[in-house]
Design a protein around this nucleic acid. Sequence first.
RNA 1: GGAGACGUCGCAUAGCCCGGUCGAGUGCGCCUCACUGCUAAUGAGGUAGGGAUCUUAAAGUCCCUCGGAGGUUCAAAUCCUCUCGUCUCCGCCA
Length: 423
Amino acid sequence: MIDPALLRENPEAIKASQRARQADDAIVDQALAADIAWRKAQVNFESLRAEQNAHSKLIGSASKEDRPALLEVAQQLAANVKAAEAGANEAQAALDALMWQIENVVIEGVPAGGEDDYVVLREVGTKKSFEFEPRDHVALGELLDIIDIERGVKISGSRFYFLKGWGARLELALMNLALDLATKADFTPLITPTLVRPEVMAGTGFLGAHADEIYYLPADDLYLTGTSEVALAGYHRDEIIDLASGPVRYAGWSTCYRREAGSAGKDTRGITRVHQFNKLEMFSYCAPEDAEAEHLRLLDLEEQMLQACELSYRVIDTAAGDLGSSAARKYDSEAWVPTQGVYRELTSSSNCTTFQARRLNVRYRREDGKTATAATLNGTLATTRWLVAILETHQQADGSVRVPAALRPYLGGIELIEPKARA
RNA sequence: GGAGACGUCGCAUAGCCCGGUCGAGUGCGCCUCACUGCUAAUGAGGUAGGGAUCUUAAAGUCCCUCGGAGGUUCAAAUCCUCUCGUCUCCGCCA
């Protein structure tokens, strides 16, 4: 949720942001009007309630003779209060409904426009070219016997797979490398629940636009999370956290589940887009004034990870219209996938400023002793999808795959995954 | 899954049976001050959050919050219903 104080003080800034996102800006004026109506109703209710409270106190200390008359007045007061309270609640509900619809205010400098209006911040590494016909990761997975898609489909349906042998170990190696990197950078490892209650799902904003992307278990009224961000953001819900010694950082490791409802026919080959995968996610809570620096820090770690995997990639500053509703800025890094001839998103890092934390009621104590809403940020450090880029980029003519040096310690030191290899 | 007990201001608890004097007592912790050569001890005071309103600001005034949501009542920590959670015992456990 956006800051109500900003709505009152500078509605124009919010309107400009909505326009940059190609979203409705008229809603800002509607919210402003609803805010005024709510405050009026609130004052009305509170003054009547004050009157009632004062009167009720009298009754408590009144003599037996005086009571009947006082009670009669009190009943009338109670009726008034009830009506005024209902009015105030209604006004608040109307205001809330509008406030939920306003998206986070984008940070100055974020490119305006839609999906294709991103700005490329940099390209790192050279796009890999081969002197032979490169195999895609599906072919490599079969040849090396490390990805078994056929049996994944047999067991669970399309977009499921088995990672096998060195494939399974490669994923764990990737996750562990990421976890080590994050731990060194002050992130506390956290293995998170992947089933959450409805209010947590709603609180993190995923039940809105992403609702049909989410697996739901009606028998237990629980949702399967598509990212550990859900649990990480909910972790400090309704708490006042200590940020006196700097940001609080977590590295969340979880399996992620996505229905991919809207992507039928897209990326059907291989493990680029699957229903279940593993992800190591960074999540930071910090003071709002530190958020932009923290965002760059997350991005830097992501790039370190990409470089450790010896991938070529580019970093883009996502356009306003392509941001999630809670993000104020988003940097994606995309790795070059040789057989597809395109950059594919491997990491995504969002600065949610105070938008997400306000809804979740995560606060911190400022130096002046007052409480304020914290800022939250998140970013990807590794996912199963990375295997696609790693396998394809480091393949050799015979189909073997060279293991990036940084991953070797996690794979018993092997340098090459070979066709005949068995774990 | 069955039975029972319990969720109160950082922690531990009192209050609930018998509704008003309870936004709430006590101990511990923490903060400030005093005393003390230092520490300890002792004494005094302070110590939740949110919102509205007012003001340049500070302060003030008012409203809400005793796990959560409803209800009864002039009035709810206290009575009723539902719900979430914790603990104990029994059962079950690929």
